[in-house]
């Protein structure tokens, strides 16, 4: 009879055991803030559909200190999402060859962050123009 008795270790708390995994869980958890923000916008859209009074109520709610605090937290969390999204990008996309050489990870991450900056400024500019 076999004397083998392979021991399977528990995975409980695996993500606390390595700084790399802690950072992973932090950047994954930014999704909670993305979801919370999207739900606030969903409520806004529903209120818009209910007429001017409802919409004004929603706008006023956005001015509360609680809402402002939440949005500052969302901003920080989603900025971190942006940063980590492009930081991971070099491992998630096929190699890009330019002039016979593979484009380095820092170039890919940098281009992504630059694209986010441009997208943000274009968005701000468009909102500005629509508002005038």
């Amino acid at each position: 009879m076999s004397k083998r008795r392979p021991y399977v270790r528990s995975m409980d708390g695996w993500w606390k055991k390595n700084p790399y995994f802690i950072e992973y869980m932090i950047h994954e958890s930014t999704a909670l803030f993305v979801a919370a923000y999207a739900f606030i916008l969903l409520v806004g859209l529903v209120r818009l559909g209910q007429g001017e009074a409802a919409w004004s109520g929603w706008l006023d709610a956005l001015k509360s200190p609680l809402s402002l605090t939440c949005h500052v937290v969302f901003l920080v969390a989603i900025l971190y999402h942006t940063y980590t999204w492009f930081k991971i990008m070099p491992i998630t996309m096929p190699p890009i060859i330019v002039g016979g050489k593979r484009v380095g990870p820092e170039v890919i991450t940098g281009s992504g962050l630059l694209a986010a900056l441009v997208a943000s400024l274009v968005l701000l500019g468009l909102v500005w123009r629509l508002a005038l």
């Binding site: 390595n18 790399y20 995994f21 992973y24 994954e28 991971i88 491992i91 998630t92």
Partner: peptide, 15 residues
């Protein structure tokens, strides 16, 4: 889920 740690620890840079 694109943790990416596998490529960090790879001693042969296989990615």
């Amino acid at each position: 889920s694109a943790v990416g740690y596998c490529s960090v620890v790879c001693p042969k840079h296989v990615d």
